[in-house]
Amino acid sequence: MTPRSLLSFVRWYVREITGEAEYDRYLERHRAHSPTPPLSRREYERLRIDRRDADPGARCC
């Protein structure tokens, strides 16, 4: 494992775990399934976080 590949792994991991990569995934998915223009980042993130209003996700002791 070179330092560079380690760095790119860390970057990939952090983007995944914080959910930053989700918008890219949404774009890819949207392009594949629908011809309509996709939501902007702002609109998408708003929807994404508002979903947690109904499902905050349990945190354990």
Binding site: Y23, R41, I49
Partner: peptide, 11 residues
């Protein structure tokens, strides 16, 4: 910050 200034930039 995440809602208004820079949506989705969690890091």
């Amino acid at each position: 910050y995440l809602r208004v200034l820079r949506p989705g930039r969690v890091m």
